[in-house]
Amino acid sequence: MSKAPRAIRLDGPQAGEPAGEAPLRRGDLAILPESEPIDAAVPAVPAKPRRRFSWGSLFVAGLSGFLALAAGVWVENTIRSLMSQNPALGYAALVCAAIATLALLVMLGRVLRDILRERKVEALRERAVAALAGGTPDEGRAIADELVSLYKGRAQTAQGRAALQEALPQLFAARDMLTVAERSLLAPLDALATAQIAMAARRVSLVTAVSPRALVDVVFVLVACARLLRSIAGIYAGRPGTLGLLRLARQVMNHLVLTGGMAAGDAVIQQVVGQGLAARLSAKLGEGVINGMLTARIGLAALAVCRPLPFVEAAAPTLSDVAGDLGGWRGDKDGEA
């Protein structure tokens, strides 16, 4: 529907004229104040949680330092003892200790690299949210350039990177730049991540529906979720190591708690319990569907955590997009029952 024509006052009210929202009558012409609605689609900038002092972290740091010192003293005493007994054995132990130290330094370097990469992705996403809320074109261009640098080593993003760099000089708004960046670089990655989540959900649903033991279900779900987290992290920001995977799992759980993702909503209840043929035929099939949907929810949370940009133009995938076919066992005969 189109608005009726109105006259807008550009100057303030004159002396003796009423102010506020009441219309001013001048003959047959009504002068109404014009108010622009606030765009509610602009995401708010999330406040970063304040880091508090933690006795648990202090305990872990102190215990780690003590164990490192104890291990160093034990290695030194062992090498000295072997040197006094047989110099050849002492030198062999020294070489083994040097190799183990080198391997430990390499592993620690990879863990530090994974943590720095994850923090870079987090900082990039926070900057993108701030830019969408009212950033300058320079901020949008800087974020787009960092995205290009983040995926410059991937052959599958070469065409998207070229298209983004070609379109950036013609854009003059941060939102437009991030929209083109999402369309060029992240759309193929989103499709790949969504396919991985749907595949993992179907696999978990099938295996837990036919497995004879509950312990097998628990182990398989944990392994499948760990593989799914590693796969999604590899799609967006590089495959993490063991410690990086644990950190990612903690972030995913925090995301699920904050967004209420673990709670079964009305749509899930309707799919699983409401009219699902699987739940009426076998409780085991119903458990398979629930486990598959739980895996899908964890995958969607990992996608939201690992994605370097918030969803600008594209719609975020939902549970029905990745696990809608899990409740498809009810079939056409469900309505006839």
Score class of each variant (00 low, 15 high):
residue 329 W to V: 09
residue 60 V to K: 09
residue 114 D to P: 09
residue 142 A to H: 02
residue 231 S to E: 05
residue 116 L to I: 01
residue 94 L to Q: 04
residue 85 Q to C: 11
residue 250 R to V: 06
residue 121 V to S: 07
residue 266 D to L: 15
residue 157 T to F: 05
residue 37 P to F: 08
residue 87 P to M: 09
residue 240 P to H: 02
residue 37 P to G: 12
residue 229 L to Y: 05
residue 166 E to D: 13
residue 273 V to M: 08
residue 275 Q to R: 15
residue 116 L to H: 06
residue 53 F to E: 14
residue 285 L to Q: 15
residue 103 A to P: 13
residue 317 P to I: 00
residue 97 A to H: 00
residue 77 N to C: 10
residue 147 L to N: 02
residue 52 R to P: 10
residue 218 V to P: 02
residue 159 Q to E: 14
residue 164 L to M: 07
residue 14 Q to T: 10
residue 123 A to K: 11
residue 311 F to V: 03
residue 218 V to D: 12
residue 197 I to F: 03
residue 126 E to D: 13
residue 283 A to R: 12
residue 69 L to T: 15
residue 230 R to A: 04
residue 132 L to T: 00
residue 304 A to G: 10
residue 262 M to E: 11
residue 258 L to S: 11
residue 145 D to P: 10
residue 295 T to Q: 01
residue 77 N to H: 12
residue 19 A to K: 11
residue 300 L to G: 01
residue 332 D to A: 15
residue 247 R to C: 06
residue 241 G to E: 00
residue 11 D to K: 08
residue 231 S to G: 07
residue 44 A to L: 15
residue 12 G to K: 13
residue 221 V to D: 02
residue 281 L to W: 06
residue 57 S to C: 08
residue 65 G to M: 11
residue 246 L to I: 11
residue 66 F to E: 11
residue 119 R to A: 04
residue 96 C to H: 04
residue 231 S to Q: 09
residue 190 D to L: 13
residue 184 S to P: 07
residue 153 G to A: 04
residue 337 A to R: 12
residue 306 C to V: 07
residue 143 I to E: 01
residue 336 E to S: 13
residue 117 R to V: 03
residue 296 A to K: 05
residue 189 L to N: 06
residue 104 L to S: 04
residue 69 L to I: 11
residue 57 S to G: 07
residue 328 G to V: 06
residue 114 D to S: 02
residue 218 V to K: 04
residue 266 D to A: 15
residue 274 G to R: 08
residue 49 P to D: 11
residue 251 Q to K: 12
residue 262 M to W: 09
residue 289 V to A: 09
residue 298 I to C: 03
residue 3 K to H: 15
residue 132 L to P: 06
residue 299 G to L: 07
residue 4 A to G: 10
residue 330 R to L: 13
residue 35 S to C: 05
residue 218 V to E: 14
residue 39 D to T: 04
residue 318 T to N: 12
residue 232 I to K: 00
residue 148 V to S: 07
residue 331 G to Y: 12
residue 240 P to E: 00
residue 337 A to Q: 15
residue 320 S to F: 04
residue 269 I to P: 03
residue 108 L to P: 00
residue 227 R to N: 10
residue 76 E to L: 15
